[in-house]
């Protein structure tokens, strides 16, 4: 090969090298530009663009897994609307987005990590469970909150330890996330902890514990509640009445009947109202005898209201 030939080959190689570097970055920039222009519409709240919002999200999702890094890059946004839009697009992309999102759990920016957790929960792929567990003790409470929320959404029992540990978190929001996750995952082991949470300082955890208990093994829940009705923490017994009323098994009704004789009128009201919920037509025939000696006007009115409501609902 003569000198000119070698030169031509060398030149060709150089061109190929440049192209191999430049073309992907040009393509990447083109992709980013495309995503950016669609994203303006997808995340718009303007009345006049309302019809274009969902198609724009679909268009971005249709670009596939290549847009995941671009969207993760946008996760630092301060706009709640943009944040929601990104998560909705990830959900539409689905499982193909999970590997990159899982890698993003290692990012230093806690704000991004918490949002990645949220997206993984919405996608619901079990491949994210173990990586999520790794961040369940993240120093930032918002990450722990979203992480446990995501583990609950995925609903994989491998999350049990992380969820149970969340019950004693210092942040109310994290305890709430743990309680909700326990219900979604169906953690029977969590029942005693959930009953204790009925007196949690944070109402979100406390009232979520009611809902979580209703999702778990009824017999065990009723037995555990029965043991806790006279807890020194009044809220436990009051909310236990509420749970028992909604469970409405014979055992639950027996416990409520006993509680309807409590000396504290507040507790009596909780038990009686729960009894009405459990047995709206008074098939057990308890109501007359229980109300016969009732003198507290607030208790009477609460029961009266509950009876009226139950009858209307039945109708």
């Amino acid at each position: 090969m003569n000198f000119c030939g070698r030169k031509a080959i060398a030149f060709g190689c150089l061109v190929l090298l440049i192209l191999s570097v430049a073309v992907p970055s040009v393509a990447q920039r083109a992709l980013e530009r495309k995503v950016d222009s669609l994203f303006v519409i997808a995340s718009s709240a303007e009345l006049k663009s309302r019809d274009q919002v969902e198609p724009a999200k679909d268009s971005i999702a249709a670009l596939g897994v290549d847009v995941v890094p671009v969207l993760v890059g946008k996760f630092t946004t301060k706009s709640a609307r943009e944040r929601m839009t990104i998560i909705q697009i990830f959900k539409r992309i689905g499982s193909p987005a999970v590997p990159y999102l899982v890698r993003s759990l290692n990012l230093a920016d806690g704000l991004v990590v918490q949002r990645v957790c949220w997206a993984l929960g919405d996608i619901g792929d079990t491949a994210a469970v173990l990586p999520l567990k790794q961040v369940s003790t993240h120093p930032r409470w918002q990450v722990r909150d979203e992480c446990l929320g995501a583990l609950g959404d995925i609903g994989d029992p491998r999350a049990a330890d992380a969820v149970l540990a969340g019950f004693s978190d210092e942040a109310g929001q994290v305890r709430k996330a743990a309680v909700v996750a326990a219900g979604k995952v169906g953690l029977a082991r969590a029942i005693p902890g959930l009953v204790a949470m009925l007196a949690d300082d944070f109402y979100g955890a406390r009232l979520s514990a009611v809902e979580a208990l209703l999702q778990l093994d009824t017999a065990v829940v009723v037995a555990t509640l029965g043991d806790s009705l006279h807890s020194r923490r009044k809220l436990v017994g009051n909310l236990a009445c509420h749970v028992l009323g909604r469970i409405a098994t014979d055992h639950a009704i027996e416990l409520l009947y006993a509680e309807a004789h409590a000396t504290d009128p507040g507790r009596r009201a909780h038990a009686l109202v729960a009894l009405v919920a459990a047995d709206p037509h008074d098939n057990c025939g308890f109501r007359d005898s229980l109300m016969a000696g009732e003198t507290d006007s607030a208790v009477i009115r609460k029961v009266q209201s509950a009876v009226y409501t139950a009858r209307n609902e039945t109708r």
Partner: peptide, 8 residues
Amino acid sequence: PRRDFGSI
């Protein structure tokens, strides 16, 4: 409900 818990 929002963020997996309720309002008041």
